[in-house]
Write a protein that binds this DNA or RNA. Structure first.
Length: 138
DNA sequence: GCCAACGTTGGC
DNA sequence: GCCAACGTTGGC
C-alpha cells in the first residue's frame, strides 16, 4: 500500500464536501507529474486530504477506483481516480506545523509547493497522523 | 494582492 | 530544439 497527499482548493472541493459525499471522483489534475502519481495509485492506498490556501491537512481518504480517463479533460491525456472518505483528523495539521518538524523537511509539500498529488513515506505519514492526534482506522 | 516557481505555447 | 512570453498554482 502506498501513501499520498492530495491537494484541493476548498472553494472548489472541500473536506466538508468530501465528508458529505463519501465517494468522489478526483479529477481536474492537469500536471503530468501529478498525473503520473495518480496512475501509480492502487485501491486501498491512503491519502492526506490537504486544503491549499488554508494550508492544512483535514483528514484521510482512500483510493477506491484506480485511474481512468478524466471525463473533464478534452485532450484525453489526463486521468482521475475515486476517493472515499476514511476519517477526519481530530486536530488539523497545518503547513506551519509540518515545516517546524525537521523529520519532514524532505516532503514534496515543502519542496514542490505546486505539485497537487505527491507521495508520502510511511514514517512521515505516521508523524503527521500523530500531529493530527489521530489513529487511522484500518 | 503579490510574486516565485513552475508549465505551456508558439515563433523562429 | 530553443527560449521569450504568457498562464497558473499556491505560499506569503
Amino acid at each position: 500500500m502506498a501513501l499520498w497527499l492530495v491537494k484541493t482548493e476548498p472553494s472548489n472541493w472541500s473536506w466538508e464536501n468530501q465528508i458529505k459525499k463519501g465517494i468522489e471522483m478526483w479529477d481536474g489534475v492537469r500536471n503530468h507529474q501529478a498525473a503520473k502519481n495518480l496512475k501509480s495509485m492502487a485501491c486501498g492506498d491512503r491519502c492526506f486530504f490537504y486544503h491549499s490556501h488554508e494550508k492544512q491537512i483535514c483528514g484521510v481518504v482512500e483510493v477506491v477506483k484506480e485511474y481512468y480517463m478524466d471525463p473533464t479533460d478534452e485532450t484525453g491525456k489526463f486521468v482521475a481516480v475515486d476517493m472515499k472518505t476514511v476519517q477526519p483528523f481530530n486536530k488539523r495539521v497545518s503547513l506551519d506545523m509540518i515545516k517546524k518538524n525537521p523529520s519532514l523537511f524532505h516532503l514534496s509539500l515543502l519542496k514542490q509547493s505546486r505539485l497537487s498529488v505527491q507521495p508520502v513515506d510511511q514514517k512521515s505519514w505516521d508523524i503527521i497522523c500523530h500531529m493530527g492526534d489521530t489513529v487511522i482506522n484500518k
